[in-house]
Computed example of a mutant assay.
Amino acid sequence: MSSIPFYAKKFVSGINIEEAFATVERLNEKNICVTLDLLGENITEQKQAIKFVEEYDILLKKISEKKLNCYVSIKLTMLGLDIDFDFCYNNLSQIMRVADHYEIRVALDMEGTQYTERTIAIYERAAKEFKYIEIVLQAYLLRTEADIERVLTANGRVRLCKGAYKEPAELALKKMPIIVENYKKLIQKLLTQGQRVCIASHDDDIIEFCMDFIEKNHIPNEKYEFQMLYGMREKTWSRIREKGHNMTVYVPYGVQWQAYYARRLSERKENVFFVLKNLFKS
């Protein structure tokens, strides 16, 4: 039985692979893809990072064995980015060898701005060696337009989100209407020039804008997917899928759920409002 309390269980699928897979199978039955996130970050001991590498290897193998419509997301600080750059890259490489073998995508989640450059550098290096690597970029960062050029030069596989971390005004846009407009500008370039684009947003304005842009520009179905967080707007997932678009749900799991849940709410005051607002939207 899961030890996750009711208030977090809506957003975190469970504490182990079995509980996470039950959620994946339920969503797959609705023709919805899943990206699984094993919770953990800011690891400071090599033994801990190596243990997470082993867990991701097992996760990838089991996804393949079960033939699930599922890929994985991972934070580089879980693999030791706070310890050493090369140590982290070697850990990621071990995971990527398994992922490429089983043809399963691996998305590098983006963390705070102190990690942005190193995360992109690792992605660029990995894209030269591995096929199924992709990265997350955040539309509210001032640097993201230039970073998109780097991603397009690497392999053009990216998830674009608004951005959740609290960042200073010299690094990030602060007003939501401006962030939304920047998102629209950036996503147009990604949809027309990227190899695989994840439209990660719960914003109706962004979703409708992207659907219209995709239709008008005849963007092939295999080049994009919409993406939302587990527990948010489930009826909307189904509506997007029923319209013929690819739909992926970001599903976190793991024993470190409490730190994840608390951090996501505390990073920015807007996150609390975001969760409360979307609890009542379908």
Rank of each mutant, 00 (worst) to 15 (best):
R196W: 15
P5T: 01
Y183D: 08
L173S: 06
M96F: 08
A169T: 04
V251R: 00
W257T: 00
D205C: 11
Y183T: 06
F274I: 11
V180R: 06
S266L: 15
Q193H: 11
W237C: 11
E181N: 13
G254P: 07
T77G: 11
F21N: 05
G156W: 13
R239W: 03
Y7A: 01
K235H: 00
H218D: 13
S13M: 02
R118S: 15
Y253D: 04
S282K: 10
R97K: 15
G194H: 11
M247K: 00
W257A: 01
Q193C: 13
Y260R: 05
I206S: 03
F213K: 08
D57V: 14
H218E: 12
S13R: 00
D86Q: 12
K185A: 14
I240L: 14
E145N: 09
T116Y: 09
V251N: 00
I133W: 06
F213P: 04
F274E: 11
I32G: 02
G163K: 07
P5H: 01
Y165N: 09
L59P: 03
K223P: 04
V24A: 10
Y89P: 04
E225P: 03
D147N: 10
Y250D: 06
I178F: 01
M96W: 05
C33M: 10
G194R: 12
I199D: 04
L152T: 06
T248I: 09
Y165E: 09
E270A: 12
R264M: 10
Y230F: 14
K243L: 14
R150A: 07
N90W: 04
I219H: 00
Y102R: 06
A8H: 00
K175A: 14
M228C: 09
